[in-house]
Write a protein that binds this DNA or RNA. Structure first.
Lengths: 202, 202, 202, 202
DNA sequence: TATGAATGAGAATTCATTCAT
DNA sequence: TATGAATGAATTCTCATTCAT
């Protein structure tokens, strides 16, 4: 009798997960090019061939990782969106980004690194370009809704801050005064809700 | 008849320069791993063997590039240091960074990418780690000297901003509103010189 | 409740047949090396493992196919043997070969291809060499019996013709004027039965 | 001082030739798929990498071989074209084919084998299909010009004969009565020049 | 100094076969 | 009997580096 379909699905999922975890670890430490498929399989403790029954290629593994990293970013934004004031928005945005990074430090390190390798990104055929543009738009809308003037420019400042702080944080081995930096960074945006916004949702 | 020693030295220097320029172009576009020595030699229009008489290895070429990139950063800081107010300092810092990037866009792109590949950096045996620490110290000192409180934290915010804005700028194909963003970013720091530290925020 | 032994045997036979049919299709199109066992199983719509319970190996499948192809050739010869004249013999030989090819075009294509890969054939441990020799002998005997002089040489000419025409026919996608070619080819042999050998060429 | 361009060209040509010779030997014995690049390089007594500086791929090597094999065929036809009678044409055609095969036995074996692997041939991007069609046309024209009726059909018979005899010859290890077979095969075509043809070139 | 032919280790990927269930 | 996850050796091809000239 064959293994049941269920048992197989469980088996597959477990293996797939092991590969992905091995991949974050190795890609983030040695880079995508610096990690051989053999090393990847070894770290995941499976045979090389099995890897290819789960992913189309080494790039396919990376692609899967990047997708989950984009989800992280989206979640960060959602958390912040519930805050009524600009300062609250920025604070929660940065705080929850820092929490994400604590949870998935390697994944973020990896994804930040890739942001600077447009050729690799392009090969992944992920909507990365579009994703960045959309993120800028969401930041702009969020600030505008909270009464910030020149929302486009301010959104760019904010975007730069988020990226900059994320990088510092992720690259520090520890001891980065994240809370203080976030507080200082957020101080530049008003802590009072805009009247307009109050009127929108009374 | 041999050429004079002088003429030889000039020729060597020209060749070396051609290699370096080819390297910035190719490394920044295709990455370090994505660029073969053969391609490098071809772009520089010399034979592979000759390349090895100018540089110890492919890594050696990268190393030389990164050194000149560190010089760029240092120059940026020097330009800003002449400004008496914190806002002036930040403004000039960012403005001259943007100018640098206009002049050496590919080099910066490359160096930003490498910042995320600590293993590669380590192999270069360059004082990069130390360089980043020193830069943070210089920012901190500069802000403190201009009367900014909590200079350590503020320096981190500033560092994040510089990195973030640089990245946005370098990755935009054009049309980034750098001037406006810089103005907005700098607004968060005081425009008046501190007489004494105590007196800044009366 | 187990199935009866009979029902099982029928099922096995059906599966085996499905594999063989899939194999002719794939081997003839993509070659033996160009067909993976996985593809084979997929085309036969069974699991890879099951294939190995029917055949010892991928080569085993090929071997089974070639056996049935040799039977085809034998049948072709038998059909011709009933003809009294040399021309009749040749005509029927070629005509029934063409019919065979219409029925088992892929199998013939495959077997013709293999005739040129002696190493593969050798691995199959089939009496191929001997089979070719025996075929030549049968042709020679058939011609001799029908009063053809220099039967050995004539048999070689005939063998070459059969092979050559078979190849042309099998490789044409259609529109090959088989009947006309056969008629023209057969014309070279006498249309009258020999009473005695001595008497044929008075 | 660099090696002179001439010296380099000689070096390259020598290596290229060694690879091609190794390739005929191995491809014809073990087949294209059955020959690994490593084995090829070993037989040619060079490093694997060097092979790739002379040919784009393993397929590239095969392609080069097939081209030279097509030249052989063309030469065979040219030799025959000088004969005024149909029988002479056929005789010289087959005779010079046999001579070619004596000179390049492995190459012909290989090329005959490939004729049955249309997928491999297609990948070579050689005008093979067209070449076969053109050859048929040349045979037809040659027979027609020598007064043969139904030249199209007769050309097909002849083509089949040439292919069939070539195969028998090339596969026999020796002792094939080529001369006798050719004489017998040619007997079917008239030994007198056609009047028409005489009139064409009086 | 300058050339590019030559090297061979190592990369990604495939595939026949096995085996736990 | 039947499944398909798992194995790992073997494949094609690339590339940094060396070296004879």
């Amino acid at each position: 009798m064959p293994r049941t379909a269920d048992a197989n699905a469980v088996l597959r999922e477990k293996t797939r997960e092991r590969v992905l975890q091995a991949a974050v670890r190795l890609f983030s430490r040695h880079g995508f090019d610096g990690t051989s498929v053999r090393a990847l399989a070894q770290e995941a403790d499976i045979a090389v061939g099995l890897l290819y029954s789960h992913f189309e290629s080494k790039e396919g593994v990376l692609s899967a990782l990047m997708q989950s990293s984009m989800l992280d970013v989206a979640r960060t934004l959602e958390a912040a969106d519930r805050e009524p004031t600009a300062r609250g928005f920025v604070t929660v945005l940065l705080t929850s980004a820092v929490e994400m990074m604590d949870a998935h430090r390697d994944l973020w390190r990896l994804s930040q690194g890739l942001r600077h390798q447009p050729e690799v990104l392009a090969r992944l055929k992920l909507p990365f370009e579009h994703f960045l543009g959309a993120t800028h738009q969401r930041l702009k809308a969020a600030l505008a809704a909270r009464g910030v003037q020149e929302a486009d420019i301010e959104a760019r400042v904010l975007f730069a801050l988020v990226e900059g702080i994320s990088q510092q944080y992720v690259q520090h081995e520890g001891g980065y005064p994240a809370a203080a930096v976030i507080r200082a960074a957020a101080r530049r945006w008003p802590a009072t809700p805009s009247r307009k916004r109050k009127a929108d949702t009374p």
